[in-house]
């Protein structure tokens, strides 16, 4: 079992390496467009954006710290990967903070319509920021990625609220341990 795990990890590392190697820097259409998006960004006061490499606008992190709702006081980090086909393809967005949320699974996949089927190239990074912020204000129990959380939200809002608190404080909800993510 242990051997299998380490093999899997090695494979993952190898894949990441090759992606990096095959990504030379060029002023592409995607870069021109993302530059405009970033220049015109108007972030709500609950959001921050962080560029690990200021010369690389195609990869960055968004930090959302909701100031109301179920997730008030929490701090959630999302990674954005903008492909060279942007804006004809949406950015790939993942939640790096483990969160108890009906529309975000435990691997960080996010269920937001404009990140998938409803994406259109006139949308911007700002549209996604507001979409993600909305997910924390109004988690949507229909069409869930985390079915257990969705069921609790639908049947017992009080318990859902308690579970969210417990997870954000750092604790076990269901069979899952959540790391503390309060500010």
């Amino acid at each position: 079992m242990i051997k299998l795990f380490s093999l899997k990890n090695q494979k993952k590392d190898g894949e990441q390496g090759s992606i990096r190697a095959g990504n030379p820097k060029r002023a592409s259409a995607a870069q021109l467009r993302i530059t405009k998006d970033i220049n015109e960004l108007t972030l709500p006061k609950t959001c921050n954006i962080d560029f690990a490499d200021p010369d690389d606008l195609l990869n960055f992190k968004l930090i959302i710290s909701p100031d109301e709702g179920f997730y008030k006081g929490g701090k959630f980090v999302f990674s954005f990967k903008v492909s060279s086909n942007y804006p004809h393809e949406p950015p790939k967005v993942k939640c790096e903070t483990m969160v108890y949320h009906p529309n975000i699974d435990l691997e960080g996949n996010v269920c937001l319509n404009i990140l998938r089927e409803d994406w259109k190239p006139v949308l911007t990074i700002n549209s996604i920021v507001y979409g993600l912020q909305y997910l924390f204000l109004e988690p949507n129990p229909e069409d869930p990625l985390n079915k257990e959380a969705a069921e609790v939200l639908q049947n017992n809002r009080r318990l859902f609220e308690q579970n969210v608190r417990k997870a954000m404080l750092g604790g076990v909800v269901g069979n899952t341990y959540f790391e503390r993510c309060l500010k």
Partner: peptide, 14 residues
Amino acid sequence: CGICRNGFDGCCPD
């Protein structure tokens, strides 16, 4: 242009 955000007096990025 809503897609590339360049001016209509300019051209598309390609």
